[in-house]
Simulated assay, not measured.
Amino acid sequence: MRIEELSTMPGRVAGKVAFITGAGRGQGRAHALRLAEEGADIIAVDIAAPVENVPYPMSTPEDLAETARQVEALDRRIVAEVADVRDLGALKAVVDKGVAQLGRLDVISANAGIDITVPWHKVTPEIMRTTIDVNLIGVWNTVMAGVQHLVDGGGGSIILTSSANGLKAGPYQVPYNSSKFGVTALAKSLAMELAKDHVRVNSVHPGGVDTTMAEFALPAFEPMHEDNPALFGMLGAWIPGVMPPREISNAVLFLASDESTWVTGAALAVDGGMSQY
């Protein structure tokens, strides 16, 4: 087959529309671009503003606009709006607008999340609440904003971003671990109930990914190493290095595609072995 023929072949998610949260940068942007490369149109949201108690800079409206520009450069359509995953009404308004413009919804990628790394005795009620509200309630909101479109359309794929810490936990991340274990359970629970509607639900569990969140989280562990060095073997992985976001996007693509039509309720670790320590 000639190269020019390959370039005109339909992609693995051609004709599908995917709703992605946290799409301003990092894993969310990578997911949007990877799915667009394979033929999907995109509904993208990001808070594009600071979040209380989060110690690293969040994405900006310019970041979200850049995601839209890159998707459009791939000759795919995109509806990109600023919205907070803690606001179910705002999410539903964006999804409904996107479906009205793009015609359907097939994939939900609940990717948005935060990480506030502190030892247990420095976790405040505000830190705990913010983390649960964004990482768990926000994921539930994301599903609720779009799932009826999948049911009405005859099926689809929901992909919830958990973490290696949603399988084994990890030190100095009580709020994050609690939220990510909740996401793992949420995926399995929804998978059971939605299977009759041909909607499959799976969770993806990244290890260390080269994003702004990881850039700020990893140094936060250093002062705690002296306090309890026995715990730090848990942070390793069998494959050395920090993976690029696209590695997670490849897993999202598989779960979004028709290659995974009998995969549901799975917890897919893409972590270089971190969750096996």
Rank of each mutant, 00 (worst) to 15 (best):
M1A: 14
R2L: 12
S7Q: 14
V13E: 10
G15M: 08
G15V: 01
G15D: 05
K16P: 13
V17E: 11
A18S: 09
F19T: 09
F19W: 05
I20V: 15
I20S: 07
R25N: 13
R25G: 10
A30E: 11
A32T: 10
A32M: 02
L35H: 10
E37L: 12
V45M: 00
I47Q: 01
A49D: 13
P50Q: 03
V51K: 04
E52P: 02
S59W: 01
P61H: 00
E62D: 13
A65Q: 15
Q70L: 15
D75E: 15
I78Q: 09
V79K: 06
A83P: 12
A83V: 03
D84Q: 04
V85Y: 13
A90D: 09
A90T: 11
L91C: 12
K92Q: 14
A93E: 13
D96A: 12
K97L: 13
K97G: 11
L102T: 08
G103V: 08
L105H: 12
D106A: 07
V107N: 08
I108Y: 01
A110E: 05
P119F: 00
M128R: 02
T130G: 01
D133S: 12
N135W: 11
N135M: 05
V139M: 12
V139K: 07
T142L: 03
M144G: 00
A145Y: 07
G146M: 08
L150G: 12
L150A: 07
L150T: 06
V151M: 05
V151I: 15
D152K: 15
G153C: 06
G153L: 05
S157M: 10
L160R: 05
S162D: 06
G166Y: 07
L167W: 01
K168E: 03
G170L: 07
Y172F: 07
V174Y: 01
V174H: 05
P175W: 06
P175E: 05
F181V: 10
G182D: 09
G182Q: 06
T184K: 08
K188G: 11
L190A: 08
A191R: 06
L194A: 02
D197W: 00
H198A: 14
H198Y: 11
H198V: 05
V199M: 08
V199P: 14
R200C: 07
V201E: 09
H205P: 08
P206G: 03
P206C: 08
V209M: 11
A214T: 13
P219K: 00
E226D: 15
D227S: 05
P229F: 01
L231I: 01
M234A: 13
M234Q: 14
M234T: 13
L235S: 06
A237G: 14
I239N: 06
V242D: 04
E247D: 12
E247K: 07
I248D: 04
S249P: 13
V252L: 11
L255W: 08
A256G: 12
A266C: 09
A269G: 10
V270P: 12
V270E: 02
D271Q: 04
Y277H: 02
